[in-house]
Write a protein that binds this DNA or RNA. Structure first.
Lengths: 147, 147
DNA sequence: AAGTGTTACTATCATTTTGAAAGCAATGTT
DNA sequence: AACATTGCTTTCAAAATGATAGTAACACTT
């Protein structure tokens, strides 16, 4: 898809997708938020080929979304943990899940709840300024300056 | 990635990604929300090969995210418009964009504003029940019943 | 000390997907 | 009649993916 060019694209959606625009990366991030950190945990959870997993983890690490952390010196073993940027991706994953719950339901479906109160969570995206739900009002994409 | 199996996955994120987990589909949806409807509009906007575009539009249509609409009988021409499910995907795109704005900034970046008031929009995902921002509290993924 | 297990990979290769370029069908326009 | 427009399809090379097997570095067991 030519990721290099996309990085110069003024669209923040395109920029996000440059390295996160494939299902494996997003599922790895899902599992990382779920608490998985190790190669074999991801591999077993996803049923992904190790070649793929190696490459995806490397890219996510290079892109600052995951970082390696040594958890054993002997034998030397590393795990992958979310960076701040990776943690900030949670709302995206949650909204993806919310769409799936609404439009790809059927059968048992995982839902999310507050870990402390046990209350089921209903995710919505809003404009923090006005409080209006995204989608409830017409929006416009704007490129600043002489674009 | 084996999309058939994913459809039976109880994870709504995985289900969403079964057919939306690639960059082209997401960029097509972005453009559709921007107002594009025609084959050549998408092709030119994205620089995508027509083979790819044909396949992606077909899948998105089969999956009920876009639908074909005849806009000219002679010559017979069709355009692609968002269905309700497609329109509901806007919050996801906006959150993807919000992440990109924060973590892939640099240079001129498109932002979104209210089309009527001109106010810039700051998208956040919250729990509609409590109003708490997603990410501000620990959450848990739950599979109901005997899972 | 030899064998077995664990974890995180790499190597190899067949299959699938993608991308680039060109072509085509059904019209409208000049 | 020739050219333009729109929405594709055909063809084929190149790249990505997936499956399977193997390796490296150690720990643990016998």
């Amino acid at each position: 898809m030519n990721d290099k060019n996309i990085c110069a694209d003024p669209c923040p959606i395109a920029r996000s997708l440059a390295f996160l625009g494939d299902a494996w990366s997003l599922l790895i991030l899902r599992d990382a938020h779920f608490g998985l950190t190790r190669f074999d945990q991801f591999r077993k959870s996803l049923g992904i080929a190790p070649t793929m997993l190696t490459r995806r983890l490397a890219t996510l690490t290079e892109e600052g979304i995951l970082e390696k952390r040594l958890y054993s010196e002997r034998p030397p073993r590393e795990e992958y943990v979310l960076t701040a940027a990776g943690r900030d991706f949670l709302p995206v994953l949650i909204m993806i899940g919310a769409w799936g719950s609404q439009h790809r339901s059927g059968g048992k479906l995982v839902y999310i709840e507050d870990a402390e109160t046990g209350q089921a969570i209903k995710p919505v995206a809003i404009d923090e300024v006005t409080g209006a739900k995204i989608g409830s009002r017409p929006i416009r994409f704007v490129l600043p300056d002489g674009g």
